[in-house]
Amino acid sequence: MNRKRLGGLIKTIEAEITLGIFDYQKYFLKSKSAVKFKEIEQRETNAIQALKAPNSPRLAEFADIWLKEKKIEWSKGHYDDVDGILTKYLIPMFGNQKISGITKQQILQFRSILTKVPGQKEGCLGPITHQPYYDAAKNVDQ
């Protein structure tokens, strides 16, 4: 009987995750992680509201705040990689633009420019380096 109930609960949770309506705290009331997930959700909500606001921040300002928030979540190596990409490529290109004003076309054009930039090894930057920019461009204007 318990396995049957648990199976139903798993299906419900998976469906909520798929629909994007899963509330961790609803199922795991006493979990310490619930507070952490709630904080992350609140930051995401605040970020979306800030980006849609007419006075949205410039990319350089937003990147600085975002990096500080992510520093505690990421390994030092990953943080350094992202910081390097921002500093070397994104900030010079988009740093003075408001985030809400950066278009999908600009991101795709920037991505094509990156394919011509010499990499650390032989050849130019590979898809791994500029894939995040392409992914971001797919989400612009949607």
Results as ranks from 00 to 15, higher is better:
residue 1 M to K: 08
residue 3 R to Y: 10
residue 3 R to C: 03
residue 4 K to W: 09
residue 5 R to L: 12
residue 5 R to Y: 09
residue 7 G to C: 09
residue 9 L to D: 12
residue 9 L to F: 07
residue 10 I to G: 02
residue 11 K to E: 12
residue 12 T to M: 07
residue 14 E to D: 10
residue 18 T to Q: 14
residue 19 L to M: 12
residue 22 F to W: 11
residue 22 F to M: 06
residue 22 F to N: 03
residue 24 Y to T: 10
residue 24 Y to E: 00
residue 25 Q to D: 12
residue 26 K to S: 04
residue 27 Y to C: 02
residue 29 L to Q: 15
residue 29 L to A: 15
residue 31 S to P: 06
residue 31 S to R: 02
residue 32 K to Y: 08
residue 35 V to W: 07
residue 36 K to Y: 13
residue 37 F to V: 00
residue 38 K to D: 01
residue 38 K to M: 02
residue 39 E to S: 08
residue 40 I to T: 11
residue 40 I to H: 03
residue 43 R to A: 06
residue 45 T to N: 05
residue 48 I to A: 09
residue 49 Q to P: 01
residue 49 Q to M: 06
residue 50 A to W: 11
residue 51 L to A: 00
residue 52 K to E: 14
residue 54 P to E: 10
residue 54 P to A: 01
residue 57 P to E: 08
residue 58 R to K: 15
residue 59 L to Y: 10
residue 60 A to N: 12
residue 62 F to M: 12
residue 63 A to C: 05
residue 64 D to C: 09
residue 64 D to T: 12
residue 65 I to F: 11
residue 66 W to K: 05
residue 66 W to N: 04
residue 68 K to R: 15
residue 72 I to Y: 07
residue 74 W to N: 01
residue 76 K to E: 15
residue 76 K to R: 14
residue 77 G to Q: 14
residue 78 H to F: 13
residue 79 Y to C: 04
residue 80 D to F: 04
residue 83 D to R: 14
residue 84 G to Y: 10
residue 87 T to C: 10
residue 90 L to Y: 15
residue 92 P to V: 11
residue 93 M to H: 15
residue 93 M to Q: 14
residue 94 F to P: 02
residue 94 F to L: 07
residue 95 G to Y: 08
residue 96 N to A: 08
residue 97 Q to W: 05
residue 97 Q to G: 00
residue 97 Q to S: 03
residue 98 K to T: 03
residue 99 I to S: 03
residue 100 S to K: 10
residue 102 I to T: 04
residue 103 T to M: 00
residue 104 K to G: 07
residue 105 Q to D: 00
residue 106 Q to W: 00
residue 107 I to D: 06
residue 109 Q to A: 13
residue 110 F to C: 05
residue 110 F to Q: 07
residue 111 R to K: 08
residue 112 S to K: 06
residue 117 V to P: 06
residue 118 P to W: 07
residue 119 G to Q: 13
residue 121 K to W: 09
residue 121 K to I: 07
residue 121 K to A: 13
residue 125 L to G: 09
residue 126 G to W: 05
residue 127 P to V: 03
residue 128 I to S: 10
residue 130 H to R: 08
residue 130 H to M: 11
residue 131 Q to G: 04
residue 131 Q to K: 15
residue 132 P to F: 04
residue 132 P to C: 07
residue 132 P to E: 08
residue 135 D to E: 13
residue 137 A to C: 07
residue 138 K to Q: 09
residue 139 N to P: 00
residue 139 N to Y: 11
residue 140 V to E: 05
residue 140 V to N: 01
